[in-house]
Nucleic acid binder design. Structure first.
Lengths: 296, 296
DNA sequence: ATAGTCATTCAAAATAATTGAATGATCTTG
DNA sequence: CAAGATCATTCAATTATTTTGAATGACTAT
């Protein structure tokens, strides 16, 4: 009456099924057969149903017993996993680590690191969000992510720890067919302003969107990611600054051309950000790796 | 050591969280506070971790304890649902009823019946497959479904129970723009053979496909369902027999025209089929309803 | 037929859970 | 700031539950 199904009973049910009889199950659990009968009886009276059909020599599962067995196994597994997860959590290994990756970073550059982590810690889930400009910072503050990688110009905040983890050079690009491609360089702001800028949308939800490398008064085409921005640049839909490592291939293949600007494209430092006080070991693992040998 | 997490402990954890303190939880469980301490201590020693932080006045969950609470609640719910499902199963209410609906039947005709059933038995899942010709029968024999509705010409089989549940009239149809539309009626087999037949593909996987209402030597266009067949007929892609209730609208709207044939279209009886010996109450519910007042 | 296996029952023994009183720590409130 | 209230823990005693072991009857295989 207190609890209708006890894990103990599900455990016994599993043992009976796997060993073929009450007696064999009893042996496998280092108990006596009557103890098995007792547990199954208790289960049956509690549920008010028959779990085994005893008309024959050996007891055989009823359909309801079959259901209890198969679904019960799921519950047993979930329970064991919960115990393991709780122990890991107590050991400061998070069950899940959520990472915001700034769109200036190429996700593929991080795959080897992720692969290494998941190999070492198969039970810990890793989730990667791609974020733009203030999006990473906001996600961190809102506790939607635990670590932000590759953020440029993070605001100062006492609750957020930062560490420089690389630098990014930008280059002004457009398609070879774009009118600006044949303009005299270095390009002035006025020359650029006459053409549509390709902008990756800030993923921040609440904070006022920042704009990076942008000239006031310029028409914009806003896209969702760096990858889309570069595709749009290649198709001549606009112009804009891109991280050099994102456009190396396109520049080498002639799908884009680089143009000097005045003032020149600024180099920016990229930061690793995490909430001060968070001491999860998975988080620490990534921080150590990313500031030890810089992936960029 | 025997079981690392007991449902009892998860229950207590839940009560502590919901009532705010060990003392309040004890009251809600009609036990004494020390019993709560005992259970939590047992959980902690079992897992080898702290579940509550007792530095302050009142005990507060550690991150690991939080994990145990939230995930543990899922397990408690799953366990209660399992108990309920086992009782229903023992009461001969199947956890799920799988129905094969022959393509000669319009699914919409059965929605009210399904709705009535799911309203009366919200916990029982209903799954409907649409099947063609031998497909329903095969799905039944293979135990992929429990009930087949609207099957024509079912083979005799000792293990399969059948009951007539309606009849279907067929009518030979084509688009008004189709060459046959202006041919002299009744159409002879030779006249029909010259034109492509629209055929719904038999969904049987192993048994040799049957063909319904088909003349040998006729070119075919095979489609996946009666709905597709009628759409293809309307677009003049072929000719063929259709159940009258499927094409009423199209005939009335002039999108299809009906043609007499010699020999004339045959009426077929439709059957309800289920495996002999299956006595589930959900199955019986549908059998009773479908043979009580015929939905067709 | 007979020896072996199987599940059950029941009383006894062993184990586990619960209680209640005592304790110290912390919070509330006047 | 002191007094009273609330909180969680401990420990020995009590109560409840589980496990055992021996006896029993039912079935199987040889």
């Amino acid at each position: 009456m207190s609890e209708s199904v006890r894990l103990e009973a599900l455990e016994v049910l599993d043992a009976i099924d796997r060993h073929g009889s009450f007696a064999a199950a009893a042996a496998s659990l280092y108990r006596v057969p009557s103890a098995i009968s007792y547990t199954i009886n208790q289960l049956e009276t509690e549920l008010g149903i028959r779990v085994f059909d005893r008309t024959g020599h050996r007891a055989v599962l009823t359909p309801a017993g079959q259901l209890l067995l198969t679904e019960g196994r799921r519950i047993l597994i979930a329970t064991r996993e919960l115990a393991a997860a709780a122990r890991r959590q107590a050991d400061h290994w998070e069950p899940e680590l959520k990472i915001a990756l700034d769109t200036t970073q190429k996700p593929a550059d991080f795959y080897p690191l992720i692969a290494e982590f998941t190999r070492a810690h198969p039970a810990i889930n890793v989730r990667i969000n791609e974020e733009v400009l203030a999006g990473s910072w906001e996600a961190l503050v809102d506790e939607r992510v635990d670590l932000a990688i590759g953020v440029t110009d993070p605001p100062a905040n006492a609750g957020i720890h930062r560490r420089q983890c690389g630098r990014i050079d930008f280059v002004f690009c457009c398609a070879p067919t774009h009118p600006l491609a044949s303009a005299p360089t270095p390009l002035t702001e006025d020359a650029i302003r006459a053409h549509r800028a390709l902008v990756v949308a800030d993923t921040a939800r609440q904070f006022s969107p920042r704009s990076g490398n942008l000239i006031d008064g310029q028409a914009r085409l806003t896209v969702a990611s760096m990858r889309t921005k570069i595709e749009a640049l290649e198709r001549g839909l606009g112009v804009g600054y891109c991280p050099t490592h994102w456009v190396d291939d396109a520049l080498a293949a002639g799908r884009l051309i680089a143009l000097e600007t005045m003032p020149p494209a600024t180099m920016r430092e990229t930061y690793l950000l995490w909430r001060r006080g968070e001491r999860g070991r998975a988080l620490q693992w990534f921080i150590d790796r990313l500031t030890g040998d810089l992936p960029d």
